[in-house]
């Protein structure tokens, strides 16, 4: 019983970490850089949903859609405004332009957090859950409906994205661009647009995670910072390469974290992510689920 309760929480937390990690992996695969502003896209998604649901009174799932599409567009805009000008700057070598892009994402994170403070200030807000029934009892275990939704959405999204990369023309173009930008240009792919699309997709994933997580963790301009760390750890475990790898990485982390908290020490829970990042980078730089390092996306 207790095990089941812990599993339900660990699994759903892990799915969230995986979702956040997924957005990181998408951008990393295509541009080779960790997007430090991803936590803020997560935050922005939650606030956009809050605006739609609480302030405008729109239905939950319509608001969800608005948040995902809106933040997807925002990701595209950010790439266009802040990332593309750097990557097109020919005077920079490849290595230094990557460093510049990473720094740009750090800057974006600070700017977005600062901008969020203007309308939202520092008070903590609540995003309503998707369902009015807060918990359901399955086999004697009380599980929050929001957590069930998180797991369901994550699974569907992971499958959808895997299929998208395997089958959809845009998905194939993204993979091609990620693996070899020059090769992609030579077969007529507008790689800059692919980067925009990748940012849009990553941002949309971040927004989905944000909207799903917000009812559990409260809305606040800083809410993305901690999540970014968890997502990063999930991505590291997954080898920063595959869609399923990052999900598995996230779930593993979520489950280990809660069991360690319960049976070792709760004070350990939050230092798990940084420890995992360090250990994985030291001993398994390809990640636990990323046997094929070069298998980007």
């Amino acid at each position: 019983m207790e095990i089941a309760t812990l599993l339900s929480v660990g699994l759903s937390n892990g799915c969230l970490y995986g979702l956040v990690g997924l957005g990181l992996v998408l951008v990393y695969s295509s541009q080779g850089i960790p997007n430090f502003a991803h936590g803020e896209l997560f935050m922005a998604g939650a606030f956009l949903a809050y605006t739609a649901i609480v302030l405008l009174g729109l239905p939950y799932f319509l608001s969800f859609l608005i948040a995902v599409v809106g933040i997807g567009l925002m990701g595209m805009l950010l790439e266009w405004l802040a990332i593309r000008p750097i990557s097109l700057h020919r005077s920079l070598g490849r290595a230094s332009s990557e460093v510049a892009i990473v720094l740009a994402t750090v800057g974006l994170a600070i700017v977005l957090k600062g901008l969020a403070r203007i309308p939202w200030g520092d008070s903590v807000r609540n995003l309503p859950t998707a369902f009015t029934t807060q918990t359901v009892t399955i086999g004697g275990v009380a599980i929050a409906t929001q957590r069930l939704l998180i797991v369901a959405v994550t699974l569907v999204l992971t499958v959808a994205i895997s299929v998208f990369f395997a089958r959809a023309p845009l998905g194939k173009k993204m993979r091609a661009t990620a693996q070899n930008p020059t090769g992609a240009k030579l077969i007529g792919i507008h790689t800059s647009n692919i980067y925009s699309a990748t940012w849009a997709l990553a941002a949309a994933c971040g927004a989905i995670a944000g909207v799903l997580a917000a009812p559990l963790i409260f809305l606040h301009p800083d809410m993305g910072t901690r999540m970014l760390l968890k997502g990063f750890a999930a991505a590291c475990l997954g080898g920063f390469g595959s869609v399923t790898g990052v999900l598995l990485g996230g779930v593993l982390m979520g489950v280990v974290e809660i069991f360690a908290g319960r049976y070792i020490a709760t004070s350990m829970m939050d230092i798990f992510a940084p420890i995992i990042i360090i250990l994985v980078l030291l001993f398994w730089p390809q990640g636990l689920f990323g046997a094929r390092r070069a298998a980007r996306v």
Binding site: V9, L216, R262, M269
Partner: peptide, 17 residues
């Protein structure tokens, strides 16, 4: 004494303990 983080998002482990 059961510690909780200031940015606690879930207290299942603590409550069960």
């Amino acid at each position: 004494l059961e510690t909780i983080e200031t940015e606690l998002t879930d207290a299942t482990a603590q409550v069960l303990k």
